[in-house]
Amino acid sequence: MDAELMAFLWRWLHVISGVMWIGLLWYFNFVQIPNMGKIPDDQKPAIGKVIAPAALFWFRWAAMATIVTGLILATYNGYIAEALALGLNGGGAQTTAIGLGMWMGIIMWFNVWFVIWPAQKKALGMVEVEADVKAAAARTAMLFSRTNTMLSIPMLFAMVSAQNWTY
């Protein structure tokens, strides 16, 4: 298969994984978290025990797929080293833009796997912990989820701008 088609396929897999990741991130932040308070206590387990664990499964694995396909794509296109150095060792502003996007994505992936997921396991009762630890874990998960929502806006700007460079 020729190089351009391979690059296209890796980018397509990267974008489709990223849509699932950020789509679920925004579901948590714009739909689930703000509305939990409006759900009667006896109905909360429908979210906490069924919907949230399923959403978290696709969320964390989509994050993993996005970063793996993204790193493969950057390697395949030959700009991974320059991009991770933010274009300061060559490549110019387009490389700086994709590099800033990559670093924001890497930080977000780290937050998903090493902060949000461990905290959610405690908050949703997948791991038995004491009530105060559970409440603290729920707050940590929410704050890091919000941080990722905040980062998703400039991250996507950087990623899309690098693909549509006109200046």
């Binding site: 932040n29 714009f30 978290i33 703000p34 933010l86 274009g87 300061l88 110019g92 502003a93 700086t96 833009a97 800033l100 929410m142 704050l143 919000r146 941080t147 929502t149 905040m150 980062l151 998703s152 806006i153 400039p154 700007f157 950087a158 701008s161 200046y167």
Partner: peptide, 30 residues
């Protein structure tokens, strides 16, 4: 004091401010 990230609208505003910072950084390097 309440963490600013606890407000969803503030989170979105901070996200857009980061876009402006990003444009300035990239333009400066360009």
């Amino acid at each position: 004091m309440k963490n600013p990230l606890e407000s969803l609208s503030l989170t979105v505003i901070i996200g857009f401010v980061l876009v402006i910072v990003l444009v300035v950084v990239v333009q400066a390097i360009n």
